[in-house]
């Protein structure tokens, strides 16, 4: 979670513009990374992020604090990404590489911070089909609980657990290694 940023009450005391500014400051980077895990393309991440913001702007009055703000934002974002991926203009084949302004993971700092095995696993996760990729991203990266993922994706918890299990199996196939054993 994002520490002390979970203040839906606070959001409701702000004007719409101020609320949007706050949301962008607090969640901008993490939401864009989340979008990137779906589309793996920076230009499309930028576009979808704008669409997410616009939807949030239009619907923020309807946010009633029944779920956390974070869950609400991620739900909107996941839906926008999947709408995009379902659109007829999305290219069917797998995106392998960015051309410009790419999300680079080859800086010396990152190379130092992230061991090679974990990098390989993350890259393999990003190659999984969306329904498996998103549950692993939500669980391991975004640190949502099974119940939260269930609420967010509107899929029952047992299905989420099954998807996570199958996602790991598919990862094993991809990685051909047995370090996934828990």
């Amino acid at each position: 979670m994002n520490g002390n940023m979970e203040y839906p009450l606070y959001i409701h005391t702000l004007s719409r513009d101020e609320a949007m500014e706050w949301i962008m400051d607090e969640y901008g980077e993490s939401l864009k990374r989340f979008i990137y895990t779906y589309v793996k393309n920076k230009a499309q991440t930028d576009d979808i992020f704008q669409e997410v913001l616009f939807t949030v702007y239009q619907k923020i009055d309807t946010f009633q604090g029944r779920s956390s703000l974070k869950n609400w934002l991620y739900r909107i974002t996941a839906n926008k990404c999947k709408d995009y991926l379902r659109s007829p203009f999305h290219r069917i084949f797998i995106w392998k590489e960015e051309i410009s302004g790419e999300v680079t993971n080859s800086t010396p700092e990152n190379t130092y911070l992230l061991d090679e095995q974990k990098r390989t696993v993350i890259e393999a996760i990003l190659k999984l089909p969306i329904k498996y990729r998103e549950v692993l991203i939500l669980q391991y990266y975004k640190e949502f609980t099974i119940q939260e993922i269930s609420d967010l994706l509107k899929v029952n918890p047992s299905t989420i657990k099954t998807r996570i299990m199958r996602a790991k199996e598919k990862l094993k196939d991809l990685l051909k290694e047995d370090f996934l054993n828990e």
Binding site: K32, Y36, F49, N110, L114, I122, I137
Partner: peptide, 12 residues
């Protein structure tokens, strides 16, 4: 690990 993979403030 995911944050390290993406780098600091790489997208927003």
């Amino acid at each position: 690990d995911f944050d390290a993979y993406f780098g600091k403030n790489s997208l927003y």
